[in-house]
Design a protein around this nucleic acid. Sequence first.
DNA 1: TAAACATATGAACACATGCTCATGCATTCA
DNA 2: TGAATGCATGAGCATGTGTTCATATGTTTA
Lengths: 118, 118
Amino acid sequence: MKNIETCGAHGLHKETVENVKKSILKDETINDLAMFFKVFGDPTRIKIMYALYLGEMCVCDIATSLHLSQSAASHQLRTLKTARLVKYRREGKAIYYSLDDDHVIKVLEQGISHITHI
Amino acid sequence: MKNIETCGAHGLHKETVENVKKSILKDETINDLAMFFKVFGDPTRIKIMYALYLGEMCVCDIATSLHLSQSAASHQLRTLKTARLVKYRREGKAIYYSLDDDHVIKVLEQGISHITHI
DNA sequence: TAAACATATGAACACATGCTCATGCATTCA
DNA sequence: TGAATGCATGAGCATGTGTTCATATGTTTA
């Protein structure tokens, strides 16, 4: 990492820098936040979450309706499950997934409202 | 992509599949959404956004207070600028960045409220 | 119990991402 | 005008990510 101590503004903005340094969130919080949003940062997972917003679905139906391979759907559902964004229940051979949290749809709505400039 | 037409559930859940197929968002919307959230999915960018939430800052101060190289800060600011999450103004040699949108902090708050299980 | 079915998982690959390093560009000032 | 300052940018590299393919696991049914 390059040294930037030559920045002449340091004198002028020392307060700003100190303020940020003491207010910055904990590393753990930052990382958890990033991981949380990273899960939303993939088109396939957004499609899956949106589909589940319409109602509980088995893996096979998710894959079929979103034109995914069974394996791809399963891998992504694992990611969503790990992030506790979806939950599941078994019914015979099928496993039904659904959204685990109301935050999910609220976060999606915030995103939609942003990209549509509202 | 593996064929999964053998899934016996197709008969049972045909309605579900059709419902998703007709309700699914446009590909463009999905991709825009994913790109939007992807920007939040990195610890460095979250730190920068949080710092800017405290107030307008020049690149040098951002880099200094967050222990980033000038180059790393600049690259990430470019990403944030492209996503229209930050704006900037020049004042002499310095360039001051600030949050471009109230959505930014709302989205972050939603994320925080999720990871803290509220 | 064997076969069929629904889903999960691991390896491998192509591609994306974030950093550093070197350098270029714009602005100010001596 | 030339040197110094603040920032941007491109190349290159290490690492991360999403998919497919092959196969394993768990459940039902003949």
